[in-house]
Design a protein around this nucleic acid. Structure first.
Lengths: 344, 344
DNA sequence: ATGAAAGCGCTAACAC
DNA sequence: GTGTTAGCGCTTTCAT
C-alpha cells in the first residue's frame, strides 16, 4: 500500500546517515549542516522521495486534511459550497475529502467515522434529513474534533455555524407570491428534522401573517426524504391539487423539491403560473432556461463554503480550546421569473 | 487527532492483559479463550473503543478505502457515476473519498497524491481536460496501485476502463439531426486531449459520411476547459452564428457545454430549433423541462460507476498481478425532444 | 552536527 | 492461552 516505496530509512542507508539525520535534513532543521541537507535533499529529489503522511500523522497528530459531509453532491448548492471550501482549503494547504449521506443517518455516522479514522483535522457537515440524534458528533467534539456546521445545523451542538438567511429568504419569496396576487400559497418542504425546514417555514408564516393571509396547515407538506423520493413529492402535489380551495401557488423549500415540482406539474399538465404559480429555493444554474423560467431563491453557496472553511481552520489552528461560537448568516438572493408572476 | 482516544494499550492496562492478547481477542483469534474474549470485547464495547485504522493500515498495508477523481461533481453524470461506485463500495465494505480536479492538471496530480498518501487501496479516475501526460498515474501503477479509468480514459495506461459508447452515441445523435432534415451541423466539444472528444468527434464524422454530408472543419469548435469557461463557449457560438453558411444545428459533446449552449442561444434570442437545432450529451435531469425540451444523449452513469468499482475491487483483491485488462463499453441512450425536431 | 532510541497504535511471529 | 517483541515510516528527545 505504500506506493511511494522509498522511505527515509532507504535514504539513510544509501547515504550512510542515520534515520534521524535524514528526517531532520528533510525538514530543514537548524541542527543539520547545509552540506548534509543538500546531499539528502538532492538524493530525495532525484529518487522522487515523498514522505508517507500516514506515518507522519500517526506521529504528529494532524493531517492537514479535512472531511466534508453533505447529503448529496448532485445538487448545485452543495457543489458550490464545496467549491468555496476548496478555495480556502487549497490556499491554506489543506486537502479535502468529500462524502455523501444520501439523507441517511446510518451513512452519516459511517462517513463521519471513516473520516476521523482517516485522521482528518476537522469536519464540515450539513446534516442528513434523517438525522435526529447527533450524539455521534457530540462525542467527537468532546474528544476535541473541530466541527463546523453549514446549511443544516443543529442546536444540540455548540460550535461555529454558517447558514443562509433562510427565514428572510422564505419571507421574501412568499411575499413576492403575495404581491403578485396569490393568496392560497402552499408550502412543500423537506423533513421537519431539518433546521432549514423550520427557518423557511417560519419565514413563510411570517409573510402570510404580515399580509393578513391566514395560515392553512393543510397547505404545508413535508417530504421526509428531502426531495430524494419522487413519490413523496408526487403525493404532496396530488394532495394539494385535489383539495377544496386548492392552492394557487406553491412555495418550495428545497432545491430538488423545487425542480421536481415543476417537472411533476408539467407531467400533470398543470400550467405554471396560470394554474399554479411556483417559487422556491434552488441553486440550479438552469433555472432561467426552464419552461417557464423559474423564480428562485438562491443561496450564496460559494460564500457559505468559504466562511465555513475559514471557521474550521480557525478552530483547528486555535492554540486554546474555543468556547465562544458564532453563527454566520448570509443573505439569499431572489430571482423573480415567469413562474411566479401572475398572468394578466 | 486520535479522536477515539481509547487505545488497545489502555484496555490492556485496565484489564491487566498484554497488548497482544487484547489485539487478538478483539480480532477473535482462535488462540484466545472465550472468557478473555468476552472480557475484552465487553470492556471495549462499554468504553466505546474503536481501533485506529491509520495505525492499522500503516501496519497492514491496506485500508479498505478507495479514492475517486473527477473533473467536477457539479454534473449529474459524475454524480450518478459516484452513486454507482458507492453502491458496490458500501456493499463490499469499502469507503470512498471524492476529489475534484476542476479540469486542472495540477489539481489532478495533487489529488491523486493526496489519496495515495491517505493510503487508499485503489483509484477510480476520469482525467481532467488539461491532462496530457499521465506519468503520475503510470508511476503509481508500477508501484502496484490499482487504477481504473472511467469516462475520460488514456491509451497510455494499460488497465481496466469503463466508458460509454461515445462513438455510437455521437453517431446516433448526429443521425437524428440529419434525419430531422438538418444538414449544416456544427459540433462543439471539449478539449481535444480528452478521449471522449475523439470518440464523439469520430461518431459525428461517421454519421455525416454515411449521410453524404461533407465534413466542414470550421463547424467543429473546441472548448479547452470542457465547458467550465463560459467565454470559450460564447466565442464558439458567436463564430458559428456569424460565419457564412451558418450551421442550422449544433451537436454538443459535453454536459455543461450542452446546457450552456442552450442558455447562450436564449440570451442571443436565437430560437431553438427554429433558427438552430440543438442536441447533445447531457445527463441533466432537467433536460425535459427546459425550454425547449432538450434532446439528450444520456450516459449510463450509475452503471459506469458500478462497473468501474467492480473492476477496481477485482484488481485490489486479486492474488496475483493482473496483466489482462478489459475495456467495458456501455450504451448511451438518446432522448429525442423538441430542440432537435425540425418545425414544419 | 550527527546519531541512538523511544514511541505514535496496531499486528504478528515467536516464545513461554 | 497468553505474553514478548519487533516493526510499519516517521518525529523527537536526548546523547554524543
Amino acid at each position: 500500500m505504500n506506493f511511494n516505496s522509498l522511505t527515509i530509512k532507504d535514504i539513510a542507508r544509501e547515504l550512510g546517515l542515520s534515520i534521524s539525520t535524514v528526517s531532520k535534513a528533510l525538514s530543514d532543521s537548524y541542527e543539520i549542516s547545509e552540506k548534509t541537507k543538500k546531499l539528502v535533499n538532492e538524493y530525495a529529489e532525484k529518487h522522487n522521495y515523498s514522505p508517507n503522511p500516514i506515518a507522519k500523522s500517526l506521529k504528529q497528530g494532524h493531517s492537514k486534511s479535512i472531511g466534508i459531509v453533505v447529503s448529496t453532491i448532485d445538487n448545485s448548492f452543495f457543489s458550490q459550497v464545496i467549491s468555496g471550501i476548496e478555495s480556502v482549503a487549497y490556499a491554506k494547504g489543506y486537502n479535502i475529502m468529500i462524502t455523501q449521506t444520501h439523507e441517511s443517518y446510518d451513512l452519516e455516522v459511517r462517513n463521519v467515522k471513516h473520516l476521523t479514522y482517516r485522521s482528518v483535522d476537522g469536519i464540515l457537515i450539513s446534516l442528513s434529513a434523517e438525522t435526529q440524534d447527533i450524539e455521534h458528533l457530540k462525542a467527537l467534539q468532546r474528544k476535541g474534533l473541530p466541527i463546523v456546521f453549514f446549511d443544516r445545523v443543529s442546536n444540540d451542538l455548540d460550535t461555529h455555524k454558517v447558514i443562509a438567511d433562510n427565514y428572510k429568504g422564505a419571507y421574501d419569496g412568499t411575499m413576492q407570491l403575495i404581491n403578485s396576487g396569490y393568496k392560497r400559497i402552499a408550502h412543500i418542504t423537506s423533513s421537519p428534522n431539518l433546521s432549514i425546514s423550520d427557518e423557511r417555514l417560519a419565514g413563510y408564516k411570517k409573510a402570510l401573517e404580515d399580509s393578513r393571509v391566514p395560515y392553512n396547515e393543510k397547505y404545508t407538506k413535508y417530504c421526509l426524504h428531502g426531495g430524494r423520493d419522487l413519490n413523496e413529492i408526487e403525493a404532496a402535489i396530488n394532495d394539494l391539487l385535489t383539495m377544496d380551495n386548492r392552492p394557487d401557488a406553491i412555495f418550495t423549500a428545497s432545491d430538488r423539491i423545487t425542480t421536481t415540482t415543476l417537472s411533476l406539474l408539467k407531467d400533470l399538465k398543470v400550467k405554471v403560473p396560470q394554474d399554479v404559480a411556483l417559487l422556491g429555493f434552488t441553486n440550479a444554474h438552469l433555472a432561467h432556461i426552464l419552461n417557464p423560467p423559474l423564480s428562485a431563491l438562491v443561496q450564496p453557496g460559494f460564500e457559505i463554503g468559504k466562511a465555513a472553511m475559514e471557521m474550521l481552520i480557525s478552530l483547528i489552528e486555535s492554540k486554546r480550546p474555543v468556547t465562544e461560537f458564532e453563527t454566520k448568516i448570509l443573505p439569499t438572493e431572489l430571482f423573480i421569473r415567469e413562474s411566479s408572476i401572475r398572468p394578466k
